[in-house]
Design a protein around this nucleic acid. Structure first.
Lengths: 197, 197
DNA sequence: CCATGGTACGAACGATCGTGCTATTACTCT
DNA sequence: AGAGTAATAGCACGATCGTTCGTACCATGG
């Protein structure tokens, strides 16, 4: 790996951390250069535009998301255990990024009214995420754990709602009971989806 | 009412609309002055700081929120009808603000990592909102419509989660089925909360 | 060992940011 | 109607934004 490629990754990694605090639009070349010890122009030369930097941050973050959340969860047994793992790893993800919350959640409300390549890319990533949830749930249906008449896409939106409400109550409102309520909500969702015994 | 007070309200009203598109931090004195036909310094004189403008926007928006969402819903019969009215009016609110989504949702993820008076004020407004939901639900318990062992604060977080998931799927992902799923999720929440017959 | 090219720097650009001053205009009240 | 005050404009400030350019460094392959 060339030297330039290495520092590029260092920059993108740092930018990802910053962006989960201030959003993708809040990224600035200047402060990012100060963070990484580079000059403004030296850093800029790696991307040629701020938009390109934002796109690379998005790519980097979604690759990490797959590594830290999706892939580990897929090792769990199909059905309910796998759904719970997905949930737990998402929690860890959104707390561990230097406790700066989930970059995607922050970017979602920031970009939903600003058309362009960055918004398109974010929408793709989030569609993939919801589809992952839906697929994992659908597998649980095939396994006979969940009701055959359950709607995977409904479940995906419901589950993400639980996550978003947690993110809101926990990060903005500092409510210590937010996580407990989120786990309770997950239990209820799963209970309602299980085949009647 | 003095002339200054009148133009101040005009400015804040315009700023509120802009902010639901670009966020509170995305507000700029310059572009806002252009929008309202004032000079930059003329507009600035009404607020003396950008932060003060942001706070006034927050106040204005929350007053309108109470007028358009909370107060009308309180006219509905207690319990389930009132919850549904709250839900419906919130939908209308977040669609009608020139179809720019809910200002509070946008500001929530924007400010959750930026301490200061604006964040504090937003947190207060959102706490009030969740408390409103919880209180409306609790009234339904007293009325005997909802289970006595139900937790109003749990319900509030759950319901807001449904709203946030709708906001996300509808505004970022342009999913036309988002609303239908949200209504379905509400039905399930209410069903689970009703006293067993 | 030297030449080539990738890598980073410093300076500067026009624009725009929030924020002060100082006039001048416009309203309000007696 | 005129005095006094409130409201707005004009201009300028230092900072910072993204971006460009020319140049120096330094690592690597011949």
């Amino acid at each position: 790996m060339s030297k330039g490629e290495l520092t590029r990754q260092t920059i993108v990694d740092a930018a990802t951390r910053v962006a989960s605090r201030v959003g993708l639009g809040g990224l600035t070349i200047g402060s990012l250069a100060a963070d990484t010890g580079l000059s403004k122009s030296g850093l800029f030369a790696h991307f040629n535009s701020k938009e390109s930097l934002q796109l690379q941050v998005l790519d980097h973050a979604s690759a990490r998301f797959v590594d830290l959340v999706v892939r580990p969860a897929l090792k769990a047994p199909r059905g309910e255990p796998r759904v719970r793992e997905l949930f737990d790893h998402w929690f860890a993800w959104c707390r561990d990024e230097l406790s700066a919350g989930c970059l995607f959640v922050a970017a979602a409300t920031e970009l939903d009214d600003q058309p362009g390549p960055v918004r398109d890319q974010l929408a793709k990533v989030q569609r993939d995420w919801l589809e992952t949830i839906a697929t994992v749930f659908a597998t649980g249906i095939s396994e006979g754990q969940f009701r055959a008449d359950a709607d995977p896409e409904q479940f995906a939106q419901d589950l993400y709602g639980v996550m978003l409400a947690y993110h809101h109550a926990s990060r903005l409102l500092d409510d210590p009971r937010a996580e407990q309520r989120a786990r309770r909500a997950l239990d209820r969702l799963l209970e309602a989806a299980r085949v009647p015994s």
